[in-house]
Simulated assay, not measured.
Amino acid sequence: MTEPTALAPYVAILGRGQGRARSLTMPEARAAMSVILSGDAAPEAIGALLMLMRMKGEVGEEIAGLTDGARAALALWTGPAPAIDWPSYAAGRTRGQPWFLAAAKLVAQAGYTVLMHGWNSHQATGASVRAALADVGIPQVPWADAPGALAQTGVAYVPLEALCPALLDLLRLRDVLGLRSCINTVLRMLNPAAAPIALQGVFHPSYRELQRDAALLLNQPGLRVLKGGGGEFEHHPTKDITLHGLQDGAIWEGQTGTVLSGHQRLSETDSTLADVWQGRIQDPFAMAIIISTAALALEACGIVDPARLARDLWLRRHDAKAPEGPSCTAFPCSSAPPTAAL
């Protein structure tokens, strides 16, 4: 039964008025998320909490606490931790093909298991993430089947509704409130299987430091946050973009580098992911997106020359077998800035 006042203390902290309101502490935010996911919160209070936090501007302690509370509501992961957590929660209104899926597949073929999870508001479009999974051989599986899928293929995608339906309900409050909320950020931070490396995309640059600060509070060892294509972890090969993150649990910053010249938009190509992956079309721009994105992921795993490995993986992508061996923790993380050169 819903308890109308269950969230009231946390709403009051945020909304007491000028000079009296403050941000939630990490324990308070954790407790608030626990109340929400338990079903003991009135929907009006949930909306008030999320919108007050948005108006104020979220801080790292709040995002970390909300994420910790969300993790506590998930069913336990039953297998070895994946090497990489790769969330996909961008709206996808302006992006083109989801080239980052091919990059994730290459990284998995290098032997680094990749757990993907997500929900995108424009799922029905031809360029949607889920529609393209099969194009590069990434299985979409229920949460309980994900450990087995990673053991077989090295990469798997879990839909948010299969991971935690209650979190999807919170995310879809955007349709009711007309605005995004901190839930979008929490889902990027979720890392449900405790992977040592997390790769996160953002659309708004200010969220890079916010997610980094929250990850630091959550004791995340490795993190890369990129202002990427459509808000995904996807590199634009003509742009030298600042990466924020963590290296061995300490704050880190680096640059992506550029691999092409020009001003082409990510969506300005008629090529499809399937055609490029299968080699039916030779699209240098699309290939540069894929290879440079894979290189950034490999660098986060400690590969010394990630661009070279990414190129090699691309050339032999159809010969690669299921991963056997290296995990992200098998290599010392490099302190040098990432290189995405082709």
Rank of each mutant, 00 (worst) to 15 (best):
D175A: 13
S23R: 11
I138K: 01
M1P: 12
L179H: 10
V107R: 06
A110F: 01
V35L: 13
P192W: 12
G325S: 06
R224N: 10
A103S: 15
D275M: 12
P196W: 13
R93M: 07
T78G: 14
A90R: 01
M33I: 09
L260E: 11
G228D: 05
N191R: 08
I303G: 05
D248F: 08
M26H: 09
P192N: 11
A250D: 07
A149I: 02
G96S: 13
A215E: 02
L24E: 02
A103I: 03
E3Q: 11
A274Y: 15
A6K: 04
E299V: 03
A103F: 00
D85L: 04
N184V: 01
T293D: 15
G69R: 06
L177G: 00
T2A: 08
N219F: 08
S34E: 15
T25C: 01
Q220D: 04
I197A: 10
L101Y: 06
W99E: 06
E253T: 11
A341S: 09
G47F: 00
P326Q: 13
T329A: 12
P192Q: 09
L216C: 08
R130H: 07
A166Q: 11
Y10K: 06
F100M: 12
G148M: 02
G148R: 09
S327Q: 08
R265I: 04
C301F: 05
L37C: 14
M33N: 07
S88E: 06
S261H: 10
G230E: 03
F285Y: 15
F331I: 15
A103D: 13
P9G: 12
L223V: 09
S38F: 10
L177H: 02
S335V: 10
K227C: 11
R316V: 10
S327G: 12
W314L: 08
G279F: 13
K321H: 14
L52Y: 05
H122T: 14
A81Q: 14
G222T: 08
R172Q: 14
M26C: 09
A162S: 15
Y207G: 01
Y112T: 03
F100T: 06
T125Y: 11
D85K: 02
V107E: 03
L150P: 04
I291P: 05
A274K: 14
I241D: 10
A215M: 04
K105D: 01
G279I: 10
A21Q: 08
L133D: 01
H318W: 10
L14S: 02
P337I: 02
G69H: 08
Q264L: 12
P332R: 09
L315E: 10
A322G: 14
L273C: 12
P306W: 11
W252H: 08
T242K: 11
R174D: 14
Q200D: 00
Y207A: 11
A6Q: 09
I251A: 15
I289E: 05
A198H: 03
Y207H: 12
D213Y: 03
Q140H: 02
F100P: 00
E62K: 04
T329G: 07
G254M: 06
Q247L: 14
N191C: 12
A195E: 05
S327M: 04
A104V: 00
G228C: 14
D275P: 10
R208H: 07
A70Y: 05
V136A: 09
R188F: 01
V35N: 09
L133I: 03
G69E: 12
L309R: 07
A340E: 07
I63G: 00
G47S: 08
F233E: 03
M26N: 08
D135S: 15
H117S: 01
I281V: 15
R308M: 09
A146L: 05
A193F: 01
